[in-house]
Design a binder for these strands. Structure first.
Lengths: 206, 206
DNA sequence: TCATACAGACCAACCAGTCGGTTTATCGTG
DNA sequence: CACGATAAACCGACTGGTTGGTCTGTATGA
């Protein structure tokens, strides 16, 4: 990929994050980059395409990782753990992307929106399926709602983009561990919850 | 409050929710309402004020409820339960407000932004304090991080605005119950987690 | 008569996107 | 290596359209 294209994306990202898609004009972007309107529109067909590219790089990465984790592990507990851990890490790598993703998705043109939605739904499906499996094979509690629990987990993790800071007291890995701990305490079947069994499950993944 | 002012807010809300603050022009709003630019600017000093009012009605309501719940109960478990339950209910009452709140807050002018941020921080503080108390008095696990757990709970609940639908299979009260159940399983001290003790805590609130 | 409520033509500012033109890199050929 | 040609990369003045906000005027009710 061309250098200028990369530089435009890198420059636009924090601007969008801070001021929103409509708070930043193309003129402002090209000025910051040190290029021109011509340069911009040589690499992007529209301002919307820039927005789409930002969305897509993030969601593609997340989906890929989730599919890997999903394929690698067998037990639902291990699967869910791996998915959550890798998902949380993304918030360190792609925080600006994610902020833009969740704040500005309304402004995506329908054709773009559709592509993004498909990948997002796939990702959601992977999580829901892991919970469903865990319920059926008895690792998770029988009395949890798959749908609501899935959305609760998604919400808990997704919300990280609102508050996570690289300079904070906890590293992203620590945050991931805490999330996994909370989730497993919340949904694991009682028989796995005594100290030793639980510790061994937690450690099995590290 | 004047009828027209109310009607403008009610009309603008779903428009902002669907198309975003910048996707809806003042002309479009006044056309839908059946009034004129003059009518609009007689009641609002700017388009931004309309955005602020939407933010403020929601966050003020949430904060008020949380303060009530906080004052009414003594044990941290009861407090946290009541706060979460009342918070979740808000997503049924104020869903459009909340969508706008989380999607368009970047576009608030600094002076408005500051007012909103203060109330939001107060609310956050109430939750954090409840968790801290629960830890100290032994109702909650000793090994949880107050900050991260608090943000996890906030995220789980806040994210509801992305998926909750009034016509869905679960009512908002049921969703609230599930959230409380997940949270308490995740953070309650083990000694409260055997079936009977837990059921009694859950029921004590209903 | 006077203030409040509303109407709607109007304006300055801004913005995404275009387009003719210029520079720079690439490469085949003698 | 030199040279010319072809295309890709980039420049920036310009435009058509839209937007938030203003201002003068009118109607209504106390």
């Amino acid at each position: 990929m061309s250098d200028l294209r990369k530089k435009i994306i890198q420059t636009a990202l924090p601007l969008f994050e801070a001021k929103g898609f409509h708070g930043v004009s193309v003129n402002e972007i090209v000025e910051q980059v040190g290029t021109s309107k011509g340069g911009f529109y040589h690499h992007f067909s529209s301002k919307d395409e820039l927005l789409f590219v930002i969305h897509d790089t993030f969601i593609s990465y997340v989906l890929e990782n989730a599919e890997k984790a999903n394929a690698e592990f067998n037990s639902p507990t291990d699967k869910l753990q791996a998915i959550v851990r890798s998902f949380v890490k993304v918030f360190d790598l792609y925080k600006p992307h994610i902020s833009v993703f969740y704040q500005e998705h309304i402004y995506l043109r329908p054709a773009y929106e559709l592509q993004i939605k498909q990948k997002r739904d796939q990702f959601k499906q992977i999580i829901m399926q892991a919970i469903e499996e865990g319920k059926q094979c008895g690792e998770f509690r029988q009395d949890i709602s798959v749908e609501i629990t899935g959305m609760a987990i998604l919400g808990m993790v997704n919300w990280t983009y609102k508050w996570y800071q690289r300079e904070g007291v906890k590293t992203i890995e620590e945050i991931g561990d805490i999330f996994v701990d909370l989730i497993l305490h919340a949904i694991l079947h009682e028989r796995f919850l005594d100290q030793n069994a639980f510790a061994s499950i937690l450690l099995s993944q590290k």
